[in-house]
């Protein structure tokens, strides 16, 4: 997983006015030619800032996203699902490691990023502020939330910043396995006993609207500017990724005999676009700003983990020379 619906700062073009215009023109020309920007290359301050913000949101989403699924490892029914889920959640934490490392190449340390996560200054994917009540919720995440993330990540892997793109390429390969695992687990529930089917349907009912929100607010309302697209920081718009996901997964959900909780959902054959009931975007804003069903719990768990681990990190530093990592893992 898990990047989706990144939140960008309002871009202040004043920042660009201060830049060396010649270097800026060369930087933009490189991106136009499809070249990757590497850590030691010249880049505008705004580019650096927005990239850090995006990559750290993505990394945070991986570690916070590991929590709702992680709680299902002990209860996962049987060896096959248990081993699959352990491997998957392990991958997600591994993605966080890759992504923090990519963001560190831009000058912000992992510790600073985690501090910003814990203080609420830095966000993570909103969908993880919803609870995973049953095994079926966990299966929904494995299949359909990961599917949403893949749509996003495949697009972003074509972006302009080398370390981020390479990390995403590796991540996408692993995500493909998550998708198989999740689809398999959902299929078994959706075609299982009446009790299992009901469990899966209820999970779908709970997650449908948070899933539509996962891709971020509609394009007409979202604040990202044209410059982020031009610099290939953002590749596809929120609506484009949402449409891609609907196109790929609605038929697969229907195929399993599940009912999507939206009477208005249909593909308009003329425009080729899916029409659907908009999720509650006021709720989205409220949840992003900290007032969702699980925001407090998720951050509290992370804070406890940080606090419990503090003595370990100090103990290692007591005997090891401190070393800053600036080399990307991918």
């Amino acid at each position: 997983m898990y990047g989706g619906g990144y939140l960008f700062e309002k871009t202040s073009l004043d920042l660009l006015a201060d830049e060396d215009q010649e270097k800026l023109a060369e930087f933009e020309a490189r991106i136009d030619r499809g070249e990757k920007i590497e850590p030691h290359d010249w880049m505008p301050k705004l580019y650096r800032r927005q990239l850090i913000r995006m990559i750290e949101q993505h990394a945070h989403s991986e570690i916070i996203g590991a929590l709702p699924e992680g709680t299902w490892i002990t209860r996962a029914p049987g060896f096959k699902r248990k081993l699959g889920l352990m491997a998957k959640v392990q991958d997600e934490v591994g993605h966080a490691q890759l992504l923090y490392s990519a963001a560190e190449t831009l000058g912000k340390s992992r510790e600073e990023m985690i501090d910003d996560l814990l203080s609420g200054r830095s966000k993570y994917s909103n969908i993880f502020n919803y609870p995973a009540y049953t095994w079926a919720d966990s299966c929904f995440i494995s299949w359909l939330v990961d599917a949403g993330a893949i749509v996003n990540q495949v697009a972003n892997s074509k972006g302009s910043y080398g370390p981020y793109c390479r990390a995403l390429e590796r991540i996408c390969i692993e995500e493909a396995f998550h998708l198989k695992f999740g689809h398999h687990a959902v299929t078994w529930l959706a075609t299982g006993t009446p009790k299992q089917k009901k469990m899966m349907q209820e999970a779908l009912n709970r997650w449908w609207y948070p899933m539509l929100q996962f891709f971020g607010p509609p394009d007409k309302e979202s604040a990202h500017s044209e410059v982020l697209m031009r610099w290939k920081v953002k590749i596809l718009s929120n609506d484009e990724t949402r449409q891609q996901w609907l196109d790929m997964y609605v038929p697969k959900i229907w195929e399993l005999g599940l009912t999507i909780p939206d009477d208005k959902l249909k593909k308009n054959e003329e425009t080729g676009k899916w029409e659907y009931t908009e999720p509650d975007w006021d709720e989205f804003v409220k949840v992003i700003n900290g007032d969702g069903p699980c925001n407090k719990e998720r951050l509290a768990v992370r804070k406890t983990a940080e606090k419990r681990g503090e003595w370990v990190r100090k103990a290692i530093l007591a005997t090891s020379p401190s070393k800053e990592y600036v080399t990307p893992l991918a």
Binding site: A66, V93, Q97, V301, A305, G309, R313
Partner: peptide, 8 residues
């Protein structure tokens, strides 16, 4: 998983 002192 998810609660260690370091991601590693």
């Amino acid at each position: 998983i998810g609660l260690g002192p370091l991601l590693e």
